[in-house]
Design a protein around this nucleic acid. Structure first.
Lengths: 218, 218
DNA sequence: GTCAATGTTTTTGTATACAAGATGGGCATG
DNA sequence: CATGCCCATCTTGTATACAAAAACATTGAC
């Protein structure tokens, strides 16, 4: 159940920013957006506020809001934080997970595996997200879970675009299994470290990807 | 320079929530607040939205916003996350801090020390905050720094109220020195673990405090 | 010709007016 | 007497009107 018009609009604008419909630094005109969504400026302003607090746009006082696409350095930073948070989740989960949840984790991991075998990137992406979310959940700390979900959502488009890198799928899969094994063994430290590496490598891979693209753009 | 009226109001309402002027679960009436601050409902609504996204109030669709004081369990969760984030900061700082920044860290720690000697809780609280903020800074990850500052601010009132526990000041001081020593030695893992314990103990101490108060309230 | 100052215009921030949903009480009915 | 339904009222959500500040362009001076 959506709360109100402003929230639906916030999600839609967010989507437009994610899929690149708005260029980096572009000003988002309240009046234009109001016309586009057939509402008044009020809900638009509320939506933009939300996006500003999420960090998707920069809001300059009395100047307007400007879309803010994170650069490679900023992305590295965000992935680094994600890696730390997920490592914590894995470590906690190793101590706190229930037998049932562990079985579920196996099930999700299995579905990831078949997706890899089928070369079904889309399914893998979804099940992979679910896998990570289950770890957040089983850290048994709702606040931590929320923070993780927030960042996961924020980094979503960037994780997606680098799944196409050769060999990443099977590598990622192997890392998942190592995490589960460590959790099953109750080895929190190991689970945390494997998880940290698993997430951090994404940031690094992304960094390389951008580094490779940059010379071409110049 | 504050951005606009709504932001000033947001800070003021936040302050009112922190210092307990609004009870847990109390509804914040937009019209009343508008009258209180001598503005229209518009900036009030913007302020309340900000608070909702910070988690200080719960916003129920078409029902209103209700102040949300975190309970003991929620606080434990938040302190746990804070401990994880600060541990990460310490670990990164051990690898990334400059000689100059390390000297500054020593200076702040020195001021903490004299505050302890003087039994000057207020000064200690301030310098202590600065100490932690310097670690966030020297993790050399602005995104991580921002997240830490956010949570630090959120937990501020709760850290404050438990500084009065006997012996906490000198214990805290010793932990600071252990962190600095580990960082100076470049031992990231050690710095992280000491830091984690240093922050986590606050959450636990708080938990005990509440547990002790609870029977009295019943 | 260029730069600066001022007036115009556009755009953000705030106030008010209006609409729609939620709360609470009264009345009717079982 | 209890319970459920309906209506009045209040509160939130949205639209519009107004104010103030910034961007822009035009014009004048050097």
């Amino acid at each position: 159940m959506e709360r109100k018009r402003a929230d639906i609009i916030a999600d839609q604008i967010e989507e437009l920013i994610f899929d690149g419909s708005f260029a980096d630094g572009e000003r988002l005109d309240e009046t234009q957006l109001a016309a586009r969504f057939s509402v008044s400026r009020t809900p638009i302003r509320e939506a933009l506020q939300r996006l500003a607090l999420s960090g998707l746009v920069d809001q300059l006082p009395r100047r307007g809001v400007f879309v803010h696409h994170p650069g490679p350095v900023e992305l590295m930073n965000m992935f680094e934080v994600m890696a730390e948070l997920e490592a914590s989740c894995a470590r906690f989960a190793a101590q706190r997970i229930t037998e049932d949840a562990l079985a579920e984790l196996d099930a999700v991991n299995g579905r990831c595996s078949t997706a890899v075998a089928d070369r079904d990137i889309e399914t893998y992406f979804l099940e992979n997200e679910l896998f990570h979310q289950m770890l957040y959940r089983n850290a048994a700390n709702p606040f931590l879970e929320q923070e993780c979900l927030r960042l996961q959502r924020r980094l979503r488009p960037f994780r997606r675009m680098q799944l196409r890198l050769r060999g990443r799928l099977s590598q990622s899969m192997a890392e998942h299994e190592a995490v589960v094994a460590a959790i099953r063994a109750g080895d929190g430290v190991e689970a945390g470290e494997v998880m940290r590496a698993h997430v951090a490598v994404q940031g690094e891979k992304f960094h390389h990807l951008v580094a490779r693209l940059k010379p071409a753009a110049e």
